[in-house]
Amino acid sequence: MTTSNKHPDAPWRNFYGRIKGKSLKASQEAYLDEDLAALSPGAVDWDVNPDRLPLDVAALFEGRPAWLEIGFGGGEHLVHQASTHGDVGIIGCEPYINGVAMLLGKIRRAGVTNLRVHPGDVRNLFDVLPDASIDRAFLLYPDPWPKKRHHRRRFVTPDHLQPLARVLRPGAIFRVATDIPDYVRQTLVEVPKAGFEWLAEQPSDWRQPWDDWYSTRYEQKALREGRVPHYLTFRRNG
């Protein structure tokens, strides 16, 4: 169910965090068994694509623009975007298999057909995404890794941002939502250095959510606990 690193040329990569949590429901096990393979871009798997040949994104979505959500959690926002924007295709990436199972159930109920799912580390997906193949990317409430010694594990570091910049086309939008002030700080420092422009002109540009926003369960928890969401919009430099 997850991308294999058994191939001798596969890079060894740390993954920080849980890959599986509490036991899955029988229905969720069925979603994984019955639906995941058909929705996964097979070229990401090292055993299927050991030479790391580029993924044919245009064929994957029949020529529609392609978007990417990095770490989709339970999949609420991902399914909402797919339902709202039927003229695009969206790849959702999430290594936490419980979240993948939750997403598959939401896909069944919503009946959306413009989604693909990579149940693994986004860095393996970056390996096979062609240059300038993605038109929009989302990073929503990523793991904050609050301890200073763990900040290198955050997504907003060069090891992640440089391959993200490579796969985004010039002019593509990158949205980041977080409720952690220090994550905001690091994002505003590191993302522009990777080749992006922050598009905010006034406080409402980072205090108000986007017009097509769907508030996730992570955001609702943050609001209940008194934390303030920030909505940061960047554009990939041309």
Rank of each mutant, 00 (worst) to 15 (best):
residue 2 T to A: 07
residue 3 T to V: 14
residue 7 H to F: 08
residue 8 P to V: 09
residue 13 R to C: 03
residue 16 Y to N: 12
residue 26 A to K: 15
residue 27 S to R: 15
residue 28 Q to K: 14
residue 32 L to A: 09
residue 32 L to N: 11
residue 32 L to E: 09
residue 36 L to P: 06
residue 42 G to D: 10
residue 44 V to Y: 05
residue 44 V to N: 02
residue 46 W to Q: 07
residue 55 L to F: 09
residue 59 A to F: 05
residue 63 G to N: 10
residue 64 R to T: 08
residue 66 A to I: 05
residue 67 W to I: 02
residue 68 L to I: 10
residue 73 G to M: 02
residue 74 G to I: 00
residue 76 E to W: 04
residue 79 V to F: 06
residue 80 H to A: 14
residue 80 H to V: 05
residue 81 Q to G: 00
residue 84 T to R: 14
residue 86 G to I: 07
residue 87 D to W: 06
residue 87 D to N: 15
residue 87 D to L: 06
residue 89 G to E: 01
residue 92 G to H: 03
residue 96 Y to P: 00
residue 98 N to T: 08
residue 103 L to I: 11
residue 109 R to F: 01
residue 118 H to R: 06
residue 119 P to W: 04
residue 120 G to M: 01
residue 125 L to M: 08
residue 127 D to I: 06
residue 127 D to K: 09
residue 129 L to A: 10
residue 129 L to P: 02
residue 137 A to I: 01
residue 138 F to H: 09
residue 139 L to S: 00
residue 149 R to Y: 08
residue 151 H to Q: 14
residue 152 R to I: 05
residue 155 F to L: 12
residue 156 V to Q: 05
residue 161 L to S: 02
residue 168 L to A: 05
residue 170 P to T: 03
residue 170 P to V: 06
residue 170 P to I: 07
residue 173 I to D: 02
residue 174 F to L: 15
residue 175 R to N: 11
residue 176 V to H: 02
residue 178 T to H: 02
residue 178 T to V: 03
residue 180 I to Y: 10
residue 186 Q to T: 08
residue 188 L to C: 11
residue 189 V to C: 09
residue 191 V to D: 01
residue 191 V to H: 04
residue 194 A to T: 06
residue 198 W to I: 03
residue 198 W to T: 05
residue 206 W to V: 03
residue 212 D to R: 13
residue 216 T to L: 01
residue 223 L to F: 05
residue 226 G to I: 11
residue 228 V to R: 15
residue 233 T to Q: 13
residue 237 N to D: 08
residue 238 G to Q: 14
